[in-house]
Simulated assay, not measured.
Amino acid sequence: MKALPPLLSNIIEWLRAGYPQGVPETDYIPLIALLRRRLSDEEVREITAALVDQGDLPIGKPDIQVMIAKVTDEKPLDADVDRVHAHLVAGGWALPDETPIDESH
């Protein structure tokens, strides 16, 4: 796997901190929706591929494109996005669109 740019690596670290046991299936789509607020589809693909490769997102690579298409075609429920947002904030992690991510790491 190729090395990710610092911003994407920092987002992966942020996600791991928010989901230390991995991302539950019910949070995949809302999480991608949150990421797409600040990232391009290609960046979201890179992040999800890295999470799959490293076992943090227990799906297959073909499923990544399906998930991104679902977010593009069918907006996730606000309640689901709010639940994921609250989960990450409760863990002490501001979302990327709320606080700039430090790219210096």
Rank of each mutant, 00 (worst) to 15 (best):
V23W: 01
Q21P: 12
L34S: 06
W14Y: 09
R45Q: 10
D27F: 02
G55C: 09
L39S: 01
N10Y: 00
L57V: 03
I32D: 03
I12V: 15
I11E: 11
T26P: 00
T48S: 11
D41R: 11
I47T: 01
Y28N: 02
G55V: 05
S9P: 00
E46H: 08
V52C: 09
I59K: 05
A49V: 04
P6W: 05
A3E: 15
P20A: 06
I59H: 06
E43T: 00
A3H: 12
I12D: 09
L8S: 09
L7H: 13
A17W: 02
D27P: 04
N10L: 00
R45M: 11
P30M: 01
P24T: 08
I59V: 13
R36L: 13
T26Q: 14
Y19Q: 07
L7A: 09
G55S: 07
R38F: 00
A33N: 10
A50H: 14
P58R: 15
D27T: 02
I32M: 10
P20G: 06
P58H: 14
G55T: 09
E42L: 15
E46L: 12
E25F: 14
I59E: 05
L35C: 07
P5M: 02
I47D: 01
S9C: 05
D27S: 06
V52S: 08
D41M: 12
L57T: 03
Q21F: 10
R45C: 04
E25M: 13
I47M: 04
P5Y: 00
P6R: 14
P30T: 01
G18S: 10
R36D: 11
P20Y: 02
Y19M: 06
G18C: 04
V52D: 10
Y28V: 07
E13H: 12
L39A: 03
P58V: 14
P20K: 01
T48M: 15
V52E: 11
A49W: 05
E46D: 12
D53R: 15
L39T: 01
